[in-house]
Computed example of a mutant assay.
Amino acid sequence: MKRLLFALLCLFSLTARASEPVATTADATEAEGFQPGEMILHHIGDSHEWHWFSLGEDHYTTYLPVLAYRAGHGVSAFSSRELAEGKTYDGLKLEHEHLVSEDGAKVYDFSITKNVASLILSAAVLLLVFTAVARGYAKRGTEAPRGIQSFFEPIIVFVRDEVAKKSIGPKYERYMPYLLTVFFFIWFNNLMGLMPGGANLTGNIAVTMTLAIITLLITLFSSNKNYWAHIFATPGVPKALLPIMIPVELIGVFVKPFSLMVRLFANITAGHIVTLSFIALIFIFRNIGVAPVTLAFGLFIFFLELLVAILQAYIFTLLTAMYIGGAVEEHHDADYQMGGGDGATPAQVH
């Protein structure tokens, strides 16, 4: 994936440089009309409006509410339509999708942006879907599931048996609500981000950071004395090495959620960039012969992203369960011996 991104960036660079010496004034004007970098960044970034698509000169956009507070000016509430195309309204304007005040005053932006609207929409979808699933269980009890219930039950059972039970152990039930919420929240938003006009919510590092922080807090508040004993008195490590090991173990506590945050953010964002880059090649070369090739590769990456959508949800949930399992695990003498009194190996103890 990294090599593919690097190759595409080089291709964009070479294409731009090759066209400069021979471009006429009209060609230069036409080339300046399409900026692939700006198009891609606009798609993967947040904004104060939700642009769905364009047909010729017509743009189909939903303008979202702008809510801002400035000291000495109070609260400003209006539609983002007032700020479209670089306009200024009530002393406010948008600079690279950041709300700024003309007089330089500090602006506290509480607007309903594209990502916030997508978050609300996905939460509503999750509530509707799983309310229907819950009604199905309440109505049919232990009978064979039907409809939407029959689709989600195998996935829920998989998360319970293959993720929660195996990673956390006997105490898994109390963490199932969070694990299921994380799994379906990430999966649904990954899929919604692949829809035309969809927001790149799980490709927003603020969202992935929030999920990682929640995982960290649950892990720390669920931890027992054995978890902290392993950090401050690592079994089997000579006491002389503890001054080195303790900082390493403490750093590891925060590196784990950091890796969760970056992994989800990077994988989802990279998929969007690669797909859009292939599509942008059509407009860069301005040759219809390029279209079938770039569209084929773009569709391949798109269908690959459908797999990545559920895979990233699974990985995030699995690692979360593993971190929680390490925090609630009870001490076993056999963990630090070649075998227990009954001949059990460390793997068999678990």
Rank of each mutant, 00 (worst) to 15 (best):
T61A: 02
A164P: 02
T88G: 08
T317A: 06
M192T: 11
I120P: 03
L264C: 08
L126A: 12
F303Q: 07
A321G: 05
A123I: 12
I301V: 14
Y227L: 06
P346W: 04
T320K: 01
A123Y: 09
S150R: 15
I205G: 07
E85V: 13
G326V: 03
E49K: 12
N287M: 13
Y108G: 01
I218A: 00
T25Y: 12
L9I: 10
L55K: 09
E330C: 14
E30M: 14
A117H: 00
I213D: 03
F302S: 04
S277E: 03
P177L: 15
K2N: 11
L295H: 04
L299H: 03
I251F: 09
Y60I: 07
Y172C: 12
V237D: 01
A199P: 08
L201H: 03
V163T: 05
Y314D: 05
N115E: 08
D333L: 15
W187D: 03
E173K: 15
H331D: 14
A212R: 00
H272V: 15
V129W: 04
F258N: 01
W50P: 01
E57L: 11
S79K: 02
E249F: 06
T131F: 10
V75H: 08
I40V: 10
F151L: 15
L194D: 02
E85K: 14
A16N: 07
V207N: 00
T320D: 02
R286T: 12
I279Q: 08
P196H: 03
V163W: 00
H230W: 13
I310T: 12
P21N: 05
Y108T: 05
A16P: 03
K239M: 13
I205T: 15
H230C: 13
E82T: 12
A28Q: 11
T210Q: 11
A124Q: 11
T62V: 13
Y227A: 02
I214E: 04
H230A: 14
G72L: 08
R174Y: 06
L318E: 01
F184R: 03
H332S: 09
P257W: 03
F184H: 05
A84Y: 04
S101A: 14
I168A: 00
Q348E: 11
E153Q: 15
L127D: 05
A344H: 06
A77T: 13
I246L: 09
T317H: 00
I214L: 12
G289L: 15
N200S: 14
Y89C: 14
L128Y: 09
T320F: 00
D109C: 09
A334Y: 01
V308W: 02
S19F: 03
Y175L: 11
A212S: 11
L311D: 04
T269V: 15
T269Y: 10
E330S: 15
L201F: 03
F258M: 07
I40S: 02
F278W: 08
L92R: 04
Y172R: 10
L64T: 08
